Amino acid sequence: MNQTASDNAEEFGFRQGDLVQEWLWDDDVDDSIREKIEKLTNEDLVDEEYDSAVDGAIIWWRDGDDEDELSDTIVDAYAVLGDDGPLWVLTPKPGREGAPSPSTVQNAAKTAGMNAATPLTVSDDWNGILLRAFGKGR
């Protein structure tokens, strides 16, 4: 059963002052999610070109994109996370345009050496899946 997002984005595990990197942004993303994260952290999101350490990351993922690219993006995003910060893959909900099959994120995460949690509802149209490195508890 999916959990439901809060109004203030605390479910992402980000805190005030955290620098969060955003990967694979496109014009179909849910700006309300971005705004909630920026309000919570009091920092602007940085894009995938940012090359210093960050405190967390979100990856926007849609069906039709190359699954190998998702694995590579997960590896790249994890490489710049400090202290094992939260790493989320955001996907359109089932039934929405671009919704991937449930196994797509699971398989890409496994290929990248990560475990994928149960999806969390983060907006009306998007789910979030928290990833953790194998052997890392929370």
Rank of each mutant, 00 (worst) to 15 (best):
R34K: 04
W23A: 04
D30E: 09
A99S: 15
K136V: 15
A108D: 07
P119G: 09
A117C: 07
N2M: 01
G113V: 02
S101I: 13
W88G: 02
E35N: 04
S103H: 12
V105H: 11
A112P: 12
W126M: 06
Q106K: 14
D27N: 10
M114V: 03
N127K: 07
L40M: 11
F134E: 12
T104D: 14
V89L: 12
Q3V: 00
E97W: 12
A57K: 06
T73E: 07
Q106L: 14
P119K: 13
D125T: 14
P86L: 13
D124C: 01
D26Q: 12
R132M: 08
D65Y: 14
A79D: 15
T104P: 04
T111E: 15
W60G: 03
E11A: 09
A99V: 08
T4Q: 06
V54R: 03
L81M: 09
A5C: 01
K93L: 05
S101F: 06
F12Q: 02
V89D: 05
G85L: 04
G82N: 05
F12C: 04
D68G: 14
L90E: 10
E22R: 11
D28F: 06
T111N: 15
I74G: 02
S103L: 12
F134M: 04
N107D: 15
L70E: 05
A133Y: 00
E48Q: 14
A109E: 08
D66A: 13
D31C: 00
D18I: 03
P86H: 12
E22T: 03
A117P: 05
P94R: 06
E49W: 04
L120A: 04
Q106N: 12
T104F: 00
E10L: 11
G98L: 05
Y50Q: 01
W23H: 11
E10T: 08
P119Y: 11
